[in-house]
């Protein structure tokens, strides 16, 4: 009985079932969940063209959740008034520079450690940038970051 049982068991092991694939989906799902969590879908539709300037003394912003983006540059072709300088805060174009203060005040109230990343086109006039910075100061959003790319890229 014991011998027969042993014989049967070993035949089941070496049977023609192949490699057990039942745990394969679990492994794949683990990987899948990792990538799903780490993926940040781009939901903002940038309406202005920004070619970032190059710089050497770069810093990385690790806390992506604290960042709020401000884009300054010429408006894209499919947007009304294309070619003119446009300012976009996160996902909407700002008509009047003076509106930025109210928008930013709300953001600072939600997240006091807010970092404003300024994505400014390299040919944009710095006067416009100064106006935006004044608005940020008024709204107490003082941590800013001039987005720029590395020298080699």
């Amino acid at each position: 009985m014991a011998i027969a049982g042993h014989f049967e068991k070993s035949s089941a092991d070496a049977g023609d079932e192949g490699i057990p694939t039942s745990s394969l989906p679990d492994i794949i799902f683990m990987l899948l969940i990792f990538f799903m969590v780490s993926t940040v879908m781009r939901q903002t539709d940038v309406k202005v063209r920004t070619t970032l300037p190059q710089a050497e003394s770069l810093e990385k912003i690790e806390q992506k959740r604290l960042i709020s983006y401000v884009y300054i540059g010429p408006k894209k072709g499919n947007v009304e008034g294309s070619g003119q300088t446009g300012i976009q805060v996160d996902d909407a174009l700002v008509k009047n520079v003076a509106n930025i203060q109210a928008v930013m005040e709300r953001k600072v109230a939600d997240e006091p450690r807010l970092i404003v990343s300024l994505k400014v086109d390299e040919d944009a006039e710095s006067g416009v940038l100064r106006d935006v910075e004044q608005e940020l100061r008024q709204a107490n959003a003082l941590r800013i970051n001039y987005a720029s790319t590395g020298e080699n890229s």
């Binding site: 993926t39 100061r137 107490n140 987005a147």
Partner: peptide, 23 residues
């Protein structure tokens, strides 16, 4: 998995950090 592999970007924002003076 392949879909998420393709769409994932591990880009970190780089730039020059500054602190504006308070108003």
């Amino acid at each position: 998995l392949i879909f998420f592999l393709i769409t994932t970007t591990f880009e970190t924002d780089t730039g020059i950090g500054m602190t504006l003076p308070p108003p």
